[in-house]
Design a protein around this nucleic acid. Structure first.
Lengths: 133, 133
DNA sequence: TATATTGTATTAGTTATATAGTACAAATAT
DNA sequence: ATATTTGTACTATATAACTAATACAATATA
């Protein structure tokens, strides 16, 4: 379970903040496969927004196969979303790496520089913090 | 110099397509430091859009210190945008690496997996293609 | 089978985004 | 100087994004 929170300032839409927090929750190991998320109504009450805002966030994550929703029972972290076929996995990792290198090159960083930075333990602080909560 | 082109379909705003093409141009080495870009009016005519659309793209890249604009003379690739201080450079590379790892983890990839993928030569095809144009 | 619980669909209103038209201001060049 | 070239500022408008109010449909459960 996650402690959801919304920041009304900053310009990031509510539904995207929810998406990010669920993604980070999975990335950090705080949300486990099969775990049930709050119902759209429950989370809407907690965060004081309309239930459609929650539904929109859940919907996008369902399209990405990250969540699995069943009308009548609820919304769950989807195991199959993480377990892609080898082909899909290969295409996805190529996509995000290519995108990343484009950004890095634009800022003048070489591939060796970013690889070296990635291997630096400092980069893990964010995830460590999440895990220790 | 770059052959700019706009795709009206696809939903990507014109000004962002221009930004991307300039960024990719720098990343690929096709645009060099000090090189002058087309004037906002010239590029507006070429691409058949309003000059404000070009100005908006140039402006965002100037904020990122990637371009240097001087009223009366023109818009240029900015050397200082790439040459950050060591501190700024360190912060920037940490930011983009942290962001990248978050995305990778969300999709279930480990740090080792993405580092291995980055070291794969296949990832460079995009940039090689740009350089060979 | 009712009834409650869950996600979904429809509609509407407000705000933000994207683009354009046009006028302005600064720098350059003649 | 002054005319030209450059980017900037202001305004308007159409479209999309975001959130909400409310009704609907599917599932679970008593």
């Amino acid at each position: 379970m996650i402690n959801f929170i919304l920041d009304p300032s900053g310009g990031t839409p509510f539904y995207r903040q929810i998406i990010d927090q669920i993604k980070f929750g999975i990335a950090s190991g705080k949300l486990k496969t099969g775990e049930q998320l709050p119902t759209v109504r429950a989370l809407a009450v907690i965060l004081k927004v309309n239930l459609n805002t929650i539904a929109k966030a859940y919907k996008e994550l369902e399209i990405l196969s990250i969540l699995d929703t069943q009308q009548g029972s609820g919304t769950f972290i989807n195991a199959n979303g993480i377990v892609l076929t080898d082909e899909e996995k290969q295409r996805k990792i190529q996509d995000i790496c290519k995108e990343f290198l484009t950004v890095a090159y634009t800022y003048g960083f070489s591939k060796d520089e970013v690889i070296n930075e990635l291997q630096n333990n400092q980069n893990n602080n964010f995830y460590n913090n999440l895990n220790n909560k």
